[in-house]
Nucleic acid binder design. Structure first.
Length: 271
DNA sequence: CACGGATCCTGATGGC
DNA sequence: TGCCATCAGGATCCGT
């Protein structure tokens, strides 16, 4: 479910509400991708200082450490006072003085991990190899060009890998490549400088637009207030195989790259 | 070091 | 209705 826009929309939807709260209790459901790393009691009494995002991770800053939260493929978060009893797929509850933060994740590819600080090896193992933030000032075309120049894999797979630039998942990789006019199968190191600059700009535009629209709700994504996103309605290629390109009318194609679906317009996007 | 494939898990969907 | 295969917004691990 969650790429950068969905994670950011989630963050925005509960960060103001939880800031300043004190943890009353924490409880776990079924095992997630990684263990919490400490006894849930360790969190009790800590104050929530704020919520940040790094790539697709939510970083919940506490007075004596931080929680790294990842939504995997099917995770979503709710924040409310008076939550019902945990359901079948609710695997983490953080009860605070200002409401309960709850992670629901049917497939359990997500995780909640406690680290004493961002420098903690536990945190570094998850964050250490992440690429640049696409919506930040550090994402400049020159560095992006140099990063791509060292990769000979298909550009779409390089984007998904997240070690050059973070946050671009399966939907937005296809969308950004469409906007940049680049065929997803093109080798990253064979893209000219101008095309890389176009791609850099397209990534920023697509992700920022998706955040504005509340993310994409394909099946069940919703923010911490239970609201759906709407970006999927304006997708140019994602999940539109067989339909006419909104730009040129050619038939949108679907292919597989590394077990993942890729969508593109064979006419608008050049190798 | 970088690449491609297998893998974790559950649920929805479509064909027969 | 049941059964089976396939697919799904992610990212790590492993062999090459």
């Amino acid at each position: 479910m969650p790429e950068l826009p969905e994670v950011e929309v989630t963050r925005l939807s509960f960060a103001p509400g939880i800031r300043g709260a004190t943890v009353l209790s924490a409880s776990l459901g079924k095992p997630l991708r990684w263990p919490l790393g400490v006894a849930p009691q360790r969190l009790v009494g800590q104050q929530v200082l704020g919520v940040r995002r790094r790539g697709k991770y939510l970083l919940i800053d506490l007075s004596e450490g931080l929680l790294l939260l990842h939504l995997g493929m099917s995770g979503s978060v709710t924040f409310a006072s008076g939550q019902a009893d945990p359901g079948k797929h609710d695997h983490f509850d953080l009860r605070t003085t200002q409401g309960t933060l709850r992670l629901n994740d049917p497939r359990r590819f997500g995780a909640v991990v406690f680290a004493t600080s961002e420098d903690d090896p536990v945190a570094q193992k998850l964050l250490g190899r992440l690429g640049v933030e696409p919506l930040g000032d550090d994402f400049d075309g020159a560095a992006f060009y140099l990063g791509l120049k060292q990769r000979k894999a298909a550009i779409k797979q390089v984007l998904l890998a997240g070690d050059v630039v973070v946050g671009v998942g399966n939907i937005y990789a296809s969308e950004a490549l469409f906007m940049a006019g680049i065929r997803p199968t093109t080798c990253a190191n064979r893209l000219s400088r101008p095309r890389v600059l176009r791609l850099q700009s397209a990534i920023r535009t697509v992700l920022a637009r998706a955040v504005e629209r509340g993310g994409s709700t394909l099946r069940d994504f919703s923010n911490a207030q239970g609201e759906s996103g709407h970006f999927q309605l304006e997708a140019m290629v994602y999940a539109r195989q067989g339909e006419p390109c909104r730009q040129c009318g050619a038939v949108i194609k679907a292919i597989k790259q590394g077990q993942r679906s890729t969508f593109f317009c064979p006419q608008c996007q050049k190798p």
